[in-house]
Simulated assay, not measured.
Amino acid sequence: MLVKDIMHKDIRCCSTSNSLDDIANQMWNEDVGFMPILDKDDKLAGVVTDRDIAMAAVLKHRPLWEISASEMVTGRPCHVCHPDDEVHKALNVMGASRIRRVPVIDGEQRLKGIIGLKDIADHTGSGGKSKNAGGLTSEELLGTIQRICKPNLLQASA
């Protein structure tokens, strides 16, 4: 099964010039916790999560309306996949990066969709059997969830 077969295509985005206050309000209104950030050329610059905003509020000691999205995404890796990737690749990216959603981009860095754990879960059967020819098993999904939820040893030792 390919990523493009199950990804969400109707995505709300923000710009690198938006403040975290703008993004938080949009997240609240859209009932989402993840926002792709596009640059001036409409290419994916990164993503901001509700957790990123909460941590910025505490650690930057500045009002959210003074912190731009570009400040949050510059220099941070953005883990992505492509529409023609196998869903297994998206699972591997999620597990290795400890993230629940992955932006889907084309060769020009343009956002085409988002694939999340729920999208994959909806296409994974119980009892180890896949609902589709993609061969996704519940054990693979569970293994990815366990990798994502593993405590961060750097923070745990602090």
Rank of each mutant, 00 (worst) to 15 (best):
H123A: 12
E30Q: 09
D85M: 04
D41S: 15
E71L: 09
V48I: 15
L59T: 14
M55Y: 12
G127P: 01
P77D: 13
A121S: 15
I105C: 13
G143F: 02
C14T: 13
P77I: 08
A24T: 02
T74F: 04
S138N: 13
M94L: 06
E108M: 14
A54E: 00
A90E: 07
P151D: 06
T124P: 14
P63V: 01
L2R: 14
C81Y: 01
V87Y: 05
Q26N: 00
T74V: 05
S138T: 13
S126T: 14
E140M: 15
L154F: 11
L38S: 02
S70H: 04
L142E: 11
A45Y: 12
I37F: 09
V3M: 07
D52I: 03
N25M: 12
G95H: 02
S157M: 10
P151G: 04
D10G: 00
A57F: 11
A24V: 02
I145W: 03
A57Q: 06
L117E: 00
K60C: 00
G107I: 04
D21H: 13
T144V: 15
L136I: 08
K131S: 01
M1F: 14
M94F: 07
I53V: 14
K60A: 02
I11G: 04
G134H: 10
N18E: 13
C78E: 05
K129A: 10
I6T: 04
K9N: 11
F34W: 12
H88F: 07
I23Q: 08
R12W: 11
C14L: 03
H8V: 08
H123P: 03
V3N: 04
M1D: 00
E108N: 15
P103W: 12
P36D: 07
S68L: 15
W28Y: 11
H123Q: 14
I6V: 15
M72T: 06
G143I: 01
S97R: 11
V47S: 09
M7S: 00
T144N: 02
P83S: 05
D31W: 05
C78P: 02
M35P: 01
L154V: 07
G135Q: 09
D52S: 10
T124D: 15
V104L: 01
F34K: 03
A45L: 10
I145H: 03
D52A: 06
G33N: 11
P83G: 05
E30F: 09
D84R: 10
V73C: 03
P36S: 09
C78I: 07
M7Q: 03
L59Y: 10
A158G: 09
L38Q: 04
I53G: 00
D106E: 12
T144C: 08
A133Q: 03
L20T: 10
I11Q: 06
A121G: 12
R51Q: 00
D85T: 04
R76P: 01
V3Q: 10
I145M: 14
K129D: 04
A24Q: 11
V47K: 09
I23R: 12
V32Q: 00
S130G: 13
Q26M: 12
D22G: 10
D39I: 05
K150I: 02
E66Q: 15
A54N: 01
R51V: 07
D21R: 13
I145P: 00
L59E: 11
D31Q: 14
H123S: 07
D22L: 05
G75K: 05
N152Y: 03
L141P: 01
H8G: 08
P77K: 14
C149R: 12
R51H: 10
D42Q: 14
K129I: 12
L117M: 12
S15F: 02
L64R: 07
G128V: 06
